[in-house]
Protein backbone atom coordinates (compact mmCIF):
# COMPACT_ATOMS: atom_id res chain seq x y z
CA UNK A 1 0.00 0.00 0.00
CA UNK A 2 3.04 2.26 -0.27
CA UNK A 3 2.20 5.47 -2.10
CA UNK A 4 5.46 6.83 -3.38
CA UNK A 5 5.50 10.44 -4.37
CA UNK A 6 8.58 10.75 -6.51
CA UNK A 7 8.77 14.14 -8.08
CA UNK A 8 12.19 15.20 -6.91
CA UNK A 9 13.64 12.14 -8.60
CA UNK A 10 15.25 13.79 -11.61
CA UNK A 11 16.49 16.81 -9.68
CA UNK A 12 20.25 16.94 -9.16
CA UNK A 13 21.14 16.11 -5.56
CA UNK A 14 22.46 19.17 -3.77
CA UNK A 15 26.14 18.80 -2.93
CA UNK A 16 25.85 15.32 -4.37
CA UNK A 17 29.47 14.25 -4.48
CA UNK A 18 28.60 10.72 -5.49
CA UNK A 19 25.86 8.82 -7.17
CA UNK A 20 24.75 6.81 -4.13
CA UNK A 21 21.93 7.85 -1.86
CA UNK A 22 23.15 9.06 1.52
CA UNK A 23 21.05 6.42 3.21
CA UNK A 24 19.16 3.60 1.65
CA UNK A 25 17.05 1.04 3.49
CA UNK A 26 15.89 -1.88 1.41
CA UNK A 27 13.15 -4.20 2.63
CA UNK A 28 14.21 -4.09 6.26
CA UNK A 29 12.16 -6.56 8.24
CA UNK A 30 11.96 -7.40 11.92
CA UNK A 31 9.72 -9.70 13.87
CA UNK A 32 9.48 -10.04 17.62
CA UNK A 33 8.11 -13.46 18.43
CA UNK A 34 5.80 -13.52 15.44
CA UNK A 35 4.81 -9.85 15.65
CA UNK A 36 6.19 -7.90 12.70
CA UNK A 37 7.37 -4.58 14.08
CA UNK A 38 8.83 -3.49 10.76
CA UNK A 39 7.50 -4.99 7.54
CA UNK A 40 9.94 -4.81 4.62
CA UNK A 41 10.31 -1.07 4.87
CA UNK A 42 12.10 1.00 2.23
CA UNK A 43 13.65 4.43 2.65
CA UNK A 44 15.89 6.47 0.42
CA UNK A 45 17.60 9.64 1.55
CA UNK A 46 19.30 11.84 -1.01
CA UNK A 47 22.65 13.37 -0.11
CA UNK A 48 22.11 16.81 1.34
CA UNK A 49 18.53 16.05 2.28
CA UNK A 50 16.84 16.81 5.57
CA UNK A 51 14.61 13.84 6.05
CA UNK A 52 11.83 13.43 8.58
CA UNK A 53 10.34 10.13 9.69
CA UNK A 54 7.00 10.37 11.43
CA UNK A 55 4.49 7.82 12.62
CA UNK A 56 2.27 6.99 15.57
CA UNK A 57 3.58 5.31 18.72
CA UNK A 58 4.65 1.78 18.04
CA UNK A 59 4.84 2.30 14.28
CA UNK A 60 8.36 0.86 14.25
CA UNK A 61 10.47 4.00 13.78
CA UNK A 62 12.94 3.20 16.51
CA UNK A 63 13.20 -0.40 15.38
CA UNK A 64 13.74 0.64 11.77
CA UNK A 65 16.41 3.19 12.59
CA UNK A 66 18.28 0.85 14.96
CA UNK A 67 18.39 -1.78 12.25
CA UNK A 68 19.55 0.80 9.77
CA UNK A 69 22.50 2.03 11.85
CA UNK A 70 23.72 -1.39 12.99
CA UNK A 71 22.37 -1.55 16.52
CA UNK A 72 19.76 -4.22 15.89
CA UNK A 73 20.17 -7.10 13.50
CA UNK A 74 17.40 -7.19 10.89
CA UNK A 75 15.70 -10.44 9.96
CA UNK A 76 15.89 -9.45 6.33
CA UNK A 77 16.86 -6.53 4.18
CA UNK A 78 19.81 -4.20 3.80
CA UNK A 79 20.89 -0.78 4.88
CA UNK A 80 23.46 1.26 2.97
CA UNK A 81 25.21 4.50 3.81
CA UNK A 82 26.59 6.16 0.66
CA UNK A 83 26.48 2.74 -0.94
CA UNK A 84 28.31 0.97 1.89
CA UNK A 85 26.41 -1.87 3.51
CA UNK A 86 26.02 -1.26 7.25
CA UNK A 87 25.94 -4.94 8.10
CA UNK A 88 28.66 -6.09 5.71
CA UNK A 89 31.19 -3.30 6.12
CA UNK A 90 30.20 -1.86 9.47
CA UNK A 91 33.51 -0.13 10.11
CA UNK A 92 33.43 1.95 6.95
CA UNK A 93 29.71 2.68 7.22
CA UNK A 94 29.91 3.76 10.86
CA UNK A 95 32.74 6.16 10.07
CA UNK A 96 30.24 8.14 7.98
CA UNK A 97 27.36 8.12 10.44
CA UNK A 98 26.51 9.99 13.59
CA UNK A 99 23.76 8.32 15.59
CA UNK A 100 21.45 9.37 18.40
CA UNK A 101 19.38 6.38 19.53
CA UNK A 102 16.35 6.73 21.73
CA UNK A 103 16.41 5.69 25.36
CA UNK A 104 19.81 4.01 25.58
CA UNK A 105 22.28 4.54 28.42
CA UNK A 106 25.62 6.34 28.32
CA UNK A 107 28.80 5.74 30.28
CA UNK A 108 26.98 7.20 33.24
CA UNK A 109 29.88 7.88 35.55
CA UNK A 110 31.50 10.44 33.25
CA UNK A 111 30.81 14.14 32.85
CA UNK A 112 29.81 15.45 29.45
CA UNK A 113 33.29 16.64 28.65
CA UNK A 114 34.88 13.42 29.86
CA UNK A 115 32.53 11.47 27.62
CA UNK A 116 33.40 13.50 24.54
CA UNK A 117 37.11 13.22 25.29
CA UNK A 118 36.73 9.49 25.75
CA UNK A 119 34.83 9.02 22.50
CA UNK A 120 37.18 11.24 20.55
CA UNK A 121 40.16 9.21 21.61
CA UNK A 122 38.29 5.96 21.04
CA UNK A 123 37.83 7.12 17.48
CA UNK A 124 41.49 7.94 17.18
CA UNK A 125 41.08 11.70 16.78
CA UNK A 126 44.08 13.69 17.97
CA UNK A 127 44.07 15.48 21.26
CA UNK A 128 43.77 19.07 20.10
CA UNK A 129 40.94 18.32 17.70
CA UNK A 130 39.01 16.51 20.43
CA UNK A 131 39.53 19.26 22.97
CA UNK A 132 38.52 22.01 20.56
CA UNK A 133 35.41 20.18 19.34
CA UNK A 134 34.35 19.21 22.85
CA UNK A 135 34.74 22.82 23.96
CA UNK A 136 32.63 24.08 21.13
CA UNK A 137 29.92 21.42 21.37
CA UNK A 138 29.51 21.80 25.11
CA UNK A 139 29.38 25.57 24.87
CA UNK A 140 26.79 25.55 22.09
CA UNK A 141 24.64 22.96 23.86
CA UNK A 142 24.95 24.80 27.18
CA UNK A 143 26.51 21.90 29.03
CA UNK A 144 29.30 23.93 30.59
CA UNK A 145 29.49 26.14 33.65
CA UNK A 146 27.38 24.90 36.56
CA UNK A 147 26.85 21.47 35.05
CA UNK A 148 30.48 20.99 34.04
CA UNK A 149 31.12 18.54 36.85
CA UNK A 150 27.74 16.82 36.81
CA UNK A 151 27.88 13.15 35.90
CA UNK A 152 25.69 12.02 33.02
CA UNK A 153 23.95 9.84 35.60
CA UNK A 154 22.48 13.02 37.05
CA UNK A 155 21.62 14.70 33.74
CA UNK A 156 18.01 15.58 32.99
CA UNK A 157 16.23 14.00 30.03
CA UNK A 158 16.86 16.99 27.78
CA UNK A 159 20.52 17.21 28.80
CA UNK A 160 20.86 13.57 27.89
CA UNK A 161 19.50 14.27 24.43
CA UNK A 162 21.95 17.11 24.03
CA UNK A 163 25.02 15.16 25.09
CA UNK A 164 23.82 12.34 22.85
CA UNK A 165 23.67 14.75 19.96
CA UNK A 166 27.17 15.97 20.80
CA UNK A 167 28.48 12.38 20.61
CA UNK A 168 26.82 12.01 17.21
CA UNK A 169 28.44 15.20 15.89
CA UNK A 170 31.90 14.81 17.40
CA UNK A 171 33.65 12.90 14.64
CA UNK A 172 32.31 14.98 11.77
CA UNK A 173 29.92 12.50 10.14
CA UNK A 174 28.29 13.00 6.73
CA UNK A 175 24.99 11.49 7.77
CA UNK A 176 23.13 12.02 11.03
CA UNK A 177 20.51 9.51 12.15
CA UNK A 178 18.59 10.96 15.09
CA UNK A 179 15.75 9.25 16.91
CA UNK A 180 13.52 11.91 18.44
CA UNK A 181 16.27 14.49 18.96
CA UNK A 182 13.87 17.20 20.11
CA UNK A 183 12.01 15.19 22.68
CA UNK A 184 12.23 16.88 26.11
CA UNK A 185 14.52 19.61 24.80
CA UNK A 186 13.58 23.13 25.98
CA UNK A 187 12.51 25.73 23.37
CA UNK A 188 15.72 27.74 23.56
CA UNK A 189 17.90 24.69 23.11
CA UNK A 190 15.62 23.51 20.35
CA UNK A 191 16.36 26.69 18.42
CA UNK A 192 20.08 26.10 18.88
CA UNK A 193 19.66 22.50 17.78
CA UNK A 194 17.73 23.45 14.69
CA UNK A 195 20.45 25.94 13.84
CA UNK A 196 23.11 23.26 14.13
CA UNK A 197 21.18 20.80 11.98
CA UNK A 198 20.35 23.39 9.32
CA UNK A 199 23.97 24.42 9.05
CA UNK A 200 24.97 20.77 8.85
CA UNK A 201 22.62 20.22 5.92
CA UNK A 202 23.64 23.48 4.26
CA UNK A 203 27.23 22.34 4.28
CA UNK A 204 26.33 19.16 2.45
CA UNK A 205 25.48 16.79 5.28
CA UNK A 206 22.35 14.67 5.38
CA UNK A 207 20.01 14.27 8.34
CA UNK A 208 17.38 11.66 9.11
CA UNK A 209 15.30 12.31 12.18
CA UNK A 210 12.19 10.84 13.68
CA UNK A 211 9.76 13.07 15.50
CA UNK A 212 6.22 13.40 16.75
CA UNK A 213 6.14 17.16 16.29
CA UNK A 214 4.65 17.78 12.86
CA UNK A 215 5.27 21.50 12.89
CA UNK A 216 8.93 20.86 13.45
CA UNK A 217 9.15 18.38 10.61
CA UNK A 218 7.38 20.82 8.30
CA UNK A 219 9.73 23.58 9.29
CA UNK A 220 12.98 21.64 9.05
CA UNK A 221 12.66 18.81 6.59
CA UNK A 222 12.54 18.79 2.84
CA UNK A 223 11.47 15.18 2.64
CA UNK A 224 9.18 13.21 4.91
CA UNK A 225 8.15 9.59 5.30
CA UNK A 226 5.12 8.44 7.25
CA UNK A 227 5.30 5.09 8.94
CA UNK A 228 2.36 3.14 10.26
CA UNK A 229 2.15 -0.42 11.50
CA UNK A 230 5.67 -1.23 10.43
CA UNK A 231 5.35 0.08 6.89
CA UNK A 232 6.35 3.26 5.15
CA UNK A 233 3.02 4.44 3.81
CA UNK A 234 4.10 7.66 2.15
CA UNK A 235 7.46 9.04 1.23
CA UNK A 236 8.19 12.26 -0.64
CA UNK A 237 8.87 16.00 -0.48
CA UNK A 238 7.04 17.64 2.40
CA UNK A 239 5.03 19.96 0.18
CA UNK A 240 3.70 17.09 -1.90
CA UNK A 241 2.98 14.76 0.96
CA UNK A 242 0.82 17.31 2.74
CA UNK A 243 -0.69 18.55 -0.51
CA UNK A 244 -2.33 21.82 0.54
CA UNK A 245 -3.24 20.79 4.05
CA UNK A 246 -1.00 20.87 7.09
CA UNK A 247 1.22 17.90 7.67
CA UNK A 248 -0.66 17.19 10.87
CA UNK A 249 -3.98 16.85 9.05
CA UNK A 250 -2.42 14.64 6.40
CA UNK A 251 -0.80 12.54 9.08
CA UNK A 252 -4.04 12.05 11.00
CA UNK A 253 -5.80 11.22 7.77
CA UNK A 254 -3.18 8.67 6.81
CA UNK A 255 -2.77 6.84 10.09
CA UNK A 256 -5.66 7.83 12.31
CA UNK A 257 -8.64 5.56 12.00
CA UNK A 258 -9.78 6.09 15.52
CA UNK A 259 -12.17 8.83 16.40
CA UNK A 260 -13.09 8.91 20.03
CA UNK A 261 -11.65 11.08 22.71
CA UNK A 262 -15.05 12.75 22.96
CA UNK A 263 -16.76 9.60 24.06
CA UNK A 264 -15.45 6.98 26.45
CA UNK A 265 -13.60 7.20 29.74
CA UNK A 266 -17.01 7.83 31.24
CA UNK A 267 -15.79 7.68 34.82
CA UNK A 268 -13.75 10.82 34.29
CA UNK A 269 -16.77 13.02 33.58
CA UNK A 270 -18.62 13.93 36.66
Amino acid sequence: MTVRITSAEGAPPPAGDNQHPAFELVALHKEFGGYAAVKRAHLRVRPGSFYGLVGPNGAGKTTLLSMAVGLQRPDEGRARVFGIDVWEEPERAKELMGVLPDGLAMPEQLTGRELLTYLGRLRGLDRDTVDARADELLAVLELTGDVERTLILDYSTGMRKKIGLATALLHGPRLLVLDEPFEAVDPVSAVVLKGILNRFVASGGSVVLSSHVMALVEQLCDTVAVMAKGQVVVEGPVAEVRGGKTLEETFVELVGHHTGGEKGLSWLSR
Partner: peptide
Protein backbone atom coordinates in the same frame (compact mmCIF):
# COMPACT_ATOMS: atom_id res chain seq x y z
CA UNK B 1 25.67 1.10 21.89
CA UNK B 2 28.49 3.64 21.86
CA UNK B 3 31.05 0.86 21.50
CA UNK B 4 29.04 -0.71 18.70
CA UNK B 5 28.67 2.61 16.95
CA UNK B 6 32.38 3.42 17.08
CA UNK B 7 34.12 1.52 14.31
CA UNK B 8 36.65 -1.02 15.50
Amino acid sequence: WLTLQTPG
